[in-house]
Amino acid sequence: MPKPKVLISRRWPAGVEAKLLSLYDVTLNPEDQPLDADAFRGAMQTYDAICPSVCDTLGSDILNAANRRCKIIANFGVGYNHIDIDAARANGLVVTNTPGVLTEATADIAMTLLLMSARRGAEGDRLVRSGLWSGWCPTQMMSSDVTGATLGLIGFGRIAQAMARKAHHGFGMKILYVKPTPADPEVVDDLHAERCASIEELLPRCDYVSLHCPGGNQTRHLMNAERLRQMKPTAHLINTARGDVVDSRALIDALTEKRIAGAGLDVYENEPHLDPGFLKLDNVTLLPHLGSATISTRTAMGEKVLRNLQAFFAGAEPPDRVV
């Protein structure tokens, strides 16, 4: 029996690619260049499985391709709002993701962004590199305290809770959160966390607000101009969730007008084509989607995809099936 044909849309850790090559008829992407819509449409007719990344958009125009051979979309990432789930379901496509293995790495980046924004780390780095730094002085680059400050979390899943642990136990931060249902009492007790009834209740009380909700139509521009106005002028917004959760133009306006103190972003609308307005601002820290970018985490993500493919082609239920 011929091996299933599998397309890997971007470069993966070498060890995972080697395992895939041993099991399947795999097409890799050694140049690591993004595939366009035409390439994915052709792939739907050529491959039994497509393994996209979170930055590959698979809309209905791709998933509805005629003469479709593809049976499974095995996503390399937790989020899957870049895949048209309704179209996948309508076409009988299985969709899987990679939950549970990138929690700590992404929470680390969220804390990195919080600290960099609070202490003006990116701005300070640029100053030193420019050659214009004239030395220490008592009022240079004054910034915000982190220890003992209040952190508000919009969403309270694995990553948010991991960030809360780091913030509370490491920096003595007070934790507020918004979640449709109450969190595990043991988690709440450990963190002395307080649940707010709404985002509107949470925002005015926080020194730092970190986003941990899924992307998609329900959360698109969740942080809009109105909600940004509800934040303290001394507050900072952190986003490691999905770029479209934040209205980019509204955030740029709020930062430009100093209606909030700063922001730390790892994800963007229309990524990687972020709004150029961000590049003109000193009070925003910009990272290139590094949330899960550790060797062990990305390898674990690839192993999750591999297990999903193995289960599917063995006729079993993939462990991380979302559709």
Rank of each mutant, 00 (worst) to 15 (best):
R120E: 06
I83Q: 05
N81H: 13
K71I: 03
A183F: 02
A235T: 13
C55Q: 15
E303C: 06
N75Q: 13
H82V: 03
G124C: 02
E269F: 04
A162S: 15
C206A: 15
A293S: 14
A261T: 03
R89D: 03
K174L: 01
G15D: 12
P276L: 09
T299E: 08
P185F: 00
E200C: 02
L203K: 00
H236T: 10
A311Q: 08
L255T: 10
A193N: 01
M163V: 10
D190A: 14
V6A: 00
K174S: 05
A14G: 04
I260V: 07
V305I: 05
Q33V: 10
I83P: 01
L237N: 08
E186S: 09
L23E: 14
R227A: 05
H169A: 10
T294N: 04
V188D: 01
Q310H: 07
R120M: 03
M231Q: 06
F313Y: 05
V6K: 00
A250I: 04
M1F: 07
M301F: 01
L279H: 11
I154D: 06
T96A: 08
T103P: 09
R220I: 00
A197Y: 06
I238Y: 12
P288T: 10
E257D: 12
A87T: 11
A18T: 09
L203F: 02
N97V: 05
W133A: 09
L191D: 07
S130N: 14
D282M: 09
D189E: 15
C137G: 12
S117H: 13
Y24M: 07
G243K: 01
M111C: 08
A197L: 09
T139K: 13
L228S: 02
G262Y: 00
N239C: 06
M1K: 15
V245R: 01
